[in-house]
Design a protein around this nucleic acid. Structure first.
Lengths: 204, 204
DNA sequence: TGTTTTTACTAAACACTGTTTAGTATATTT
DNA sequence: AAATATACTAAACAGTGTTTAGTAAAAACA
């Protein structure tokens, strides 16, 4: 029965088609303005068809959110090449910040919006998040073992580092940094400088 | 012509009535589930009436956002009593965090959601934000003058401290701290511990 | 006072949204 | 060839923010 396999393939193709259209519309117009009807129009199917492939709108954006994490994780792991654990931690921080500033809509979906996580609520785990966060924790563990940073609980430090960078980029992404009377370019520089300053005071 | 004054009073009363109802509904059910029709039902007027007193939904939530800032600022200024500038900074940080954890919906509106700031876009300034942030900057300035913290640019430090605490509470409020397999109580404790740890490494 | 104007309000509509239901062709299996 | 299963959609449901046109009551004017 090769027919069943073909049907399975076709089902996956249709899912991909929907995700591709949704991703493109999302990156162009944002979450709120990407409606099921817009996606349906774009792929030239009726809105109801989309519900044969996805439970609801949030499930679509959960998949996009997972793709975005794959992208971020790929970027983060590039720092694996850095020998010194502290330099690696710095690299990870800068990569994370760069990702957020270059892909603000993805970042929003991954770490700010409630939508994609409605998929997880009670039951599943937030694997994508745990994976990215785990890498930070590991690296901090290495820094602690080699006494490259001031001693503290590994998880507390991981939470701190993550929160620090997230704080900077999320205030920027959601336009709260306007309290600084600075040009956008100078502001971005200052975000990076803040990170450097934080790393320097973490150092032993 | 005392009539004009009465009319003015009545107009303000109606605005207050709408804000009170909206605030109550917002704190009970959240932003998305607080619709103009819900508010109208609650105050026993037609939905169209609300538009005679507010330009749009965002203007209503901008006022609520301002009230929330008044509340936060009042709390923050209580730290004025603390003599030592560094202790005062710590107090401000803890007060900010406490406010966010006790009023997550207000915090969301003030520092995460896009809605209330749509009111500001091009033209006005975000006065409420600048006021709260200014107080942090001032205190950090005092810390620097008295050499209580490691030297760095005043604004860079203010941005850092704010971002650090915002990072912690916003990841918590938007449920990204679930990467930690901890109970809610332990998690909250860890947020405060993170802040203490950060303050300790800022110290000279 | 009576007439005109202004004010306060609303019913209904517009243009959307996510989602569900019922029904129809087409493809597959028996 | 007949029966069944699959893929799809038109239309509806229940909601959203917002606007328009029209109506009573209040205020101003004569």
């Amino acid at each position: 029965m090769a027919i069943k396999e073909r049907k399975e393939r076709e089902k996956q193709d249709m899912r991909n088609l929907i995700i591709e259209s949704a991703t493109q519309l999302f990156l162009k117009h944002g979450y709120d303005k990407t409606s099921i009807r817009n996606i349906a129009d774009d792929i030239e199917y009726s809105p109801a068809t989309i519900y044969l492939y996805f439970k609801d709108k949030d499930e679509i954006f959960y998949v996009i959110h997972e793709n975005a994490f794959e992208l971020l994780n790929k970027e983060l792991r590039k720092n694996e090449a850095i020998e010194n654990a502290f330099d690696r931690l710095g690299g990870i921080g800068r990569t994370y910040m760069k990702f957020a500033l270059e892909n603000p809509d993805y970042y929003d979906l991954m770490f700010i919006m409630r939508a994609p996580l409605s998929q997880i609520k009670s039951e599943q785990k937030w694997e994508a998040g745990e994976c990215a966060f785990g890498y930070v924790t590991e690296t901090i563990g290495a820094c602690l073992e080699q006494k490259l940073i001031k001693p503290a609980d590994k998880f507390l430090l991981a939470m701190s580092v993550w929160s620090f960078v997230h704080g900077l980029v999320s205030l920027y992404v959601r336009e709260r940094m306007c309290v600084f009377p600075l040009s956008d370019d100078l502001l971005r520089d200052m975000l990076y400088s803040s990170l450097e300053n934080y790393l320097s005071i973490l150092k032993t």
